[in-house]
């Protein structure tokens, strides 16, 4: 018998080492992070090839919807549908990047680092680990804010 249960001890959205990074970079704490998505939402998202491409590509570097559209070979509206669901699920982060002409680019960064499914003690349990924001991105952002 399979019972999909939410994590008994949901991982804290703030990783233990994060305060040190916050301190080092003088960063303000973010607002509340969305609760973990349920397992069906998560697995449904990961079942999509383009979603996996988006996660992999935005893990390497922050990318705009237009660039993701090129990488996946699908239209930008198809990309927006997916990134909206990924942002809602807390698997990627949306950022704005100032351009030299004064406009903003919206870019996406993967926050999902690990998704673990554990079958033990007659239960199916799962956890998501999210990455801390990348130090290099934070440095870039902060340097621009001075």
């Amino acid at each position: 018998m399979t019972v999909a249960s939410p994590p008994t001890d949901p991982p804290s959205p703030v990783a233990p080492t994060r305060w040190a990074t916050d301190l080092f970079l003088g960063r303000m704490t973010d607002g509340p992070v969305a609760d973990d998505p349920d397992l069906a939402t998560l697995v449904g998202l990961l079942d999509d090839e383009h979603v996996r491409t988006i996660l992999a590509a935005t893990n390497a570097e922050p990318l705009s919807a237009a660039t993701l559209s090129d990488r996946c070979g699908v239209s930008t509206s198809a990309i927006y549908r997916r990134v909206d669901r990924l942002v809602d699920a807390g698997l990627i982060d949306e950022r704005t990047r100032p351009r030299s002409d004064g406009h903003h680019d919206t870019v996406y960064v993967a926050t999902l680092e690990r998704f673990e499914l554990v079958v033990a003690d007659g239960e199916v349990d799962w956890t998501i680990d999210r990455t801390n924001r990348d130090v290099a991105d934070e440095l870039t952002r902060l340097w621009g804010k001075f």
């Binding site: 570097e61 922050p62 990047r97 990348d134 130090v135 290099a136 991105d137 440095l139 870039t140 340097w143």
Partner: peptide, 10 residues
């Protein structure tokens, strides 16, 4: 090094 990564990533 982090600034260099910031250049590459952003």
């Amino acid at each position: 090094y982090q600034a260099y990564r910031g250049l590459r990533r952003n």
